[in-house]
Simulated assay, not measured.
Amino acid sequence: MGQLWTSYKNFRALAGPVLMLLYPLQASVMAIESRPMNVEENEQWLAYWILYSFLTLMEMLLQPLLQWIPIWYDAKLLFMLWLVVPHYKGAAFLYDRIMRGHVLKKLGQITDRYKPE
């Protein structure tokens, strides 16, 4: 049982960076370099990096709380898998449905402040 647990821990340690960084990095480069450019694919990966940055920031701020949740890392891996898998386009979906309204509202407030009169 101990060897199985060690293998699982090693898999988790490798799966996180591969799933959250290496694959999205490679897919983002491919999306940028594709000709003709695929707008949907570019939107998916831009949304992914926005959400990944936001999640990383929240995770840093909430670290003392999250360390008490034993399944946090596994839940995060599953969530990131949903964001990354091209079939689901989770990042684009989440950005469109939840974040876009907040981002546009903040952008409007920022541009209103700095408009020349």
Score class of each variant (00 low, 15 high):
49 W>D: 08
90 G>R: 03
80 M>S: 06
80 M>I: 12
117 E>M: 12
52 Y>M: 06
16 G>T: 15
70 P>W: 04
95 Y>E: 08
72 W>S: 00
74 D>E: 15
112 D>R: 14
91 A>N: 05
43 E>S: 10
9 K>D: 14
79 F>A: 14
32 I>G: 03
65 L>K: 00
75 A>N: 07
94 L>M: 14
19 L>Q: 12
106 K>N: 06
80 M>Y: 05
54 F>Y: 15
53 S>N: 10
89 K>D: 02
105 K>Y: 14
84 V>E: 00
63 Q>S: 01
17 P>W: 12
4 L>I: 15
11 F>P: 11
111 T>A: 13
8 Y>L: 12
62 L>K: 00
18 V>L: 11
62 L>N: 04
40 E>L: 10
20 M>K: 06
33 E>R: 13
34 S>W: 00
105 K>D: 12
92 A>L: 05
13 A>Y: 15
15 A>D: 11
50 I>R: 01
70 P>K: 00
58 M>H: 10
24 P>C: 11
69 I>A: 03
33 E>D: 12
11 F>C: 12
17 P>H: 11
52 Y>P: 02
94 L>D: 02
15 A>P: 07
13 A>I: 07
106 K>F: 15
60 M>Y: 08
93 F>G: 00
1 M>T: 10
45 W>M: 02
21 L>K: 06
15 A>F: 13
96 D>Y: 04
90 G>N: 06
9 K>C: 05
19 L>E: 13
87 H>F: 12
27 A>D: 09
34 S>F: 04
22 L>W: 10
51 L>H: 04
1 M>V: 09
26 Q>T: 04
114 Y>K: 05
47 A>E: 02
76 K>Y: 05
11 F>M: 15
27 A>H: 02
101 G>L: 08
45 W>S: 02
51 L>V: 02
103 V>C: 13
89 K>P: 02
25 L>P: 06
